[in-house]
């Protein structure tokens, strides 16, 4: 019993939880910024940039905008952050001491949705029109991208007859896995809010989107949540590919390689596209998303 608690705390705080999740997420975010900069012929930010961005925000004085409940202003990012840490702890990365039980995938999905929900509420709470438009778009986009996301995960689960993430990580690579990874990748674009689905934080229309009124510590927490979300979602795709390897180092290597490849692919897509309208995005996810889901389910059932 004691052991269980220690393992849980280790998973929450160190691996794959807060600490390594944040570092990994920052690394991935830096990668994407650097990569895009290089694609655009620029030098790009230095390696430690996301880290310093975070600490600088921590060090700023927080301004609570007019008419916003202060407790709520702080609580929303904290709730989002906590749920994403718990979600990370569930991720069966190689060497994780984390908690694993039948049905943890369902819990993971709940926890992934939580920061999004908090984001949307945060947008509404801050009483800025820009944030409210952004929050609405985010809410709509959530409904759109969850179709391929949940579809792929459910199809895989049906195929493996288990809703346990560890089973996912242990499963061999098959066509169904690859299709599911593709579907997850399509959803990832909108989940990370990169082009062409950077609709909720479209700077040119609605200033800074949902977070327009956030600053200082709460904004830092949102940024941290975003970093953790990145490592979680990219990691979720990565664990699909570590099944066939036995050695933990090999697994780790594959995990990192896949993560980097995924983030590079994301950024190639982002760099080469204009932003779509939310109508386009919804249509895209509900047509191609349904097609992808059907394909994955078919592959899972037939192959």
């Amino acid at each position: 019993m004691n052991n269980w608690w220690i393992n849980a705390i280790l998973a929450l705080l160190f691996w794959p939880g807060l600490l390594s999740g944040a570092l990994f997420g920052w690394f991935l975010l830096w990668m994407s910024r650097k990569f895009i900069a290089r694609l655009q012929g620029r030098q790009g930010p230095p390696f430690y940039q996301p880290f310093f961005d975070f600490w600088k925000l921590i060090g700023k004085k927080t301004i609570i905008p007019n008419g916003v409940n202060p407790v709520l202003f702080y609580a929303l990012p904290i709730i989002g952050l906590i749920s994403i840490i718990f979600a990370l702890a569930l991720l069966p990365v190689p060497g994780s001491s984390g908690i694993s039980f039948e049905g943890d995938l369902v819990l993971l999905i709940y926890l992934i949705e939580m920061p999004v929900l908090m984001d949307v509420i945060a947008g509404y709470v801050t009483r800025s029109v820009y944030a409210q438009v952004g929050a609405t778009r985010e809410a709509i986009l959530t409904i759109a991208y969850n179709l391929p996301f949940l579809g792929a995960l459910i199809a895989l689960a049906v195929r493996l007859h288990s809703f346990k993430l560890a089973t996912f990580a242990a499963a061999p690579i098959s066509i169904a896995t690859i299709l599911a990874a593709v579907a997850l990748f399509v959803a990832l674009l909108a989940q990370l809010k990169v082009n062409p689905f950077s609709i909720p934080n479209a700077e040119q229309e609605i200033v800074a989107g949902i977070h327009v009124e956030y600053n200082g510590l709460p904004l830092a927490l949102f940024e941290l949540t975003h970093a953790l979300e990145t490592s979680l979602l990219v990691g979720l795709i990565s664990i699909l590919f570590i099944g066939p390897f036995t050695s933990i180092w090999m697994k780790l290597l594959i995990f990192f390689v896949v993560a980097v490849v995924v983030i590079l692919l994301t950024n190639i897509t982002a760099a080469g596209t204009a932003r779509l309208k939310v109508q386009h995005a919804f249509k895209f996810y509900w047509t191609w998303g349904i097609a992808a889901t059907v394909l994955v389910v078919a592959a899972a059932l037939i192959l």
């Binding site: 609570i64 905008p65 007019n66 008419g67 916003v68 709520l72 609580a75 929303l76 800025s128 327009v212």
Partner: peptide
């Protein structure tokens, strides 16, 4: 959250 939303703080810096 619903209840907290109903009790906004009155003063502060204006929204952008």
């Amino acid at each position: 959250i619903i209840f907290a939303m109903r009790k906004p703080s009155p003063k502060g810096v204006s929204t952008f």
